[in-house]
Amino acid sequence: MTRKFSQIHVLLIVMVVVILTMWILTGSDFLNPGNFQSMAYQMPELGILTLAMMIPMLTAGINLSIIATANLSGIVMALILTSETSLQASGWQSILIVAGAILVGFIIAALIGAINGYFIAYLELPPILASLGMMVMLNGISIVITQGYVISGFPDAMLEIGSADILGIPVPFLLLLICAGIVSLVLNWTPTGTRIYMIGSNPIACFYSGVNNKNVLLRTYMLSGILSGVAAVVMTSRFNSAKADYGESYLLLTVLASVLGGVSASGGFGKVSGVLISLIILQMVSSGLNLMGISNFLTLALWGFILLLVMIIKFLIEKYQQKRH
């Protein structure tokens, strides 16, 4: 209990420090509404993928194939969207085709998730290896389908998703909030969610308590797959294209964002709220440095540094608490 408590506190302090630093360094630019809106456009890609990474991590697993899943399902959506009929369609027809394409993309993402889940839950492969193999294979399939090229040029309805806003809130950000809401609902308010946490801590005791571990793991990886599919919608519509290797550098960053948000690397602990705060911190560092005209790569370095810092502070707090007892 105290463990999670301290990490959220540390995160909030880090967030305040980041806001203050950026404010001082960039002046009013940082607190400008326009900056917040642009942050809200940028955050969802990494954000939704991080949710997709977080859920398997709670079961003490990992899903290295989230990006590859997103790319493949994005490519399939793109293939449908760039077909003759969909480009010639207009009005409602066009919207229906876009919706259909997204649905097909989701089904594929869910299917890939289910296959991952089958390998991990039923064949009992180590998650890191099963999803690594899956990542390489999916990536290969994407390359074969696209011949390594970019697929681009979508109907307007698709592009709207990435660029429109509702009441000033960008649609991608709304999608992130919806995903976070659903994940939070599943984790906190469904039997499956409770089981996910319990399996992450001790699968054997869950098995002896009549929990259908295999089924729970299968659902976990399916959910992770579907979230990758949502990320695919955001990515393809924002880039107006799909490709086999988009966003590959995000993979380990999703692990970074999850752990920074308090997800335990050994499973069983972690909350959506923590992950959201972690995403906000990371995005603010990135946008702030961007405003100052500093290279994106310094952002990467700072992200790594913040993660280490938070983990070290957490370690020291725990050590101090142990000493007091």
Partner: peptide
């Protein structure tokens, strides 16, 4: 870092990888 702060090796090296690579590229 792994030994002193008992941070899992995967997490540590993801972080340091970003630090090394980020700083170098900057």
């Amino acid at each position: 870092i792994i030994d002193l702060f008992k941070i899992p090796s995967m997490i540590t090296t993801i972080a340091t990888s970003n630090i090394f690579y980020g700083l170098l590229t900057v």
